[in-house]
Design a protein around this nucleic acid. Structure first.
Lengths: 118, 118
DNA sequence: CTTTCGGTTGAACGGTTGTTCAAATGATAT
DNA sequence: ATATCATTTGAACAACCGTTCAACCGAAAG
């Protein structure tokens, strides 16, 4: 008989699965949460967030700080904007970026704690 | 004259760049932080973490819960293991997965706060 | 109005990532 | 010892991601 690998597999502990299924968040909530974290999962964006947490900065200065092109920085800033993590302020020709709220810093702190602990 | 786009661009506010450059974390720290967040930036892994936060679970049950193959789940669990987010316990033939510490939950909470606030 | 220039955008490219499929482990139960 | 079966693994493939390049946009300065 051929060894058929079932695609969804047999449940071993039905009681546990049922119990957990009750409390799992709705699809759109896990989806939004995943997009939120996805933004942090890149070194460039992490550095940008860290930098503008210290001081509001423009694209040119961020590019100089990180040793990247303005274009690359701008592409990343767009993602941060879409995720509502940053807000902007114009002064003459220059646009300054800053964090939109303090949750970002708090999420950072908890994560650093976890990593330090190892 | 041809319009040459310089690759690193002119600094506009040298004082700010220098100040921020002082406090930016070391390369390896941002790197570890990014890998940590990268793990959360996927809906499947997020659901797995959420599930085993409620109750320790085996691969088969997780696969059934999420409607995925055991293989797919196992691949993701490997990433969670590498990031020290989960630990295992064997009972007979079955291996139960559970969260390795409570920081994970705390990071979740802060993020949900940010998202709810919108 | 025209020029300047910081910032944005879109296409294109390598590289990475998540899932599937098939095969292999390896601890347990017989 | 052998068979069973939960779990792991590796290769392959499509989808996605980050950077570069070139062109464009638009507010402000002249």
């Amino acid at each position: 008989m051929p060894d058929i690998q079932e695609s969804v597999c047999a449940v071993i502990h039905k009681d546990i699965v049922d119990e957990v299924k009750e409390s799992i968040p709705r699809e759109d909530e896990t989806s939004r949460l995943a997009s939120f974290f996805k933004v942090f999962g890149d070194e460039t964006r992490l550095k940008i967030l860290w930098a503008i947490d210290r001081h509001e900065m423009c694209v040119c200065d961020l590019a100089a700080l990180l040793g990247m092109t303005k274009s690359a920085v701008s592409h990343q800033l767009r993602l941060l904007r879409e995720e509502n993590l940053v807000r902007t302020r114009r002064d003459g020709k220059v646009i300054f970026y800053q964090l939109s709220d303090s949750h970002v810093t708090q999420v950072f702190e908890k994560s650093v704690e976890h990593i330090e602990e190892k």
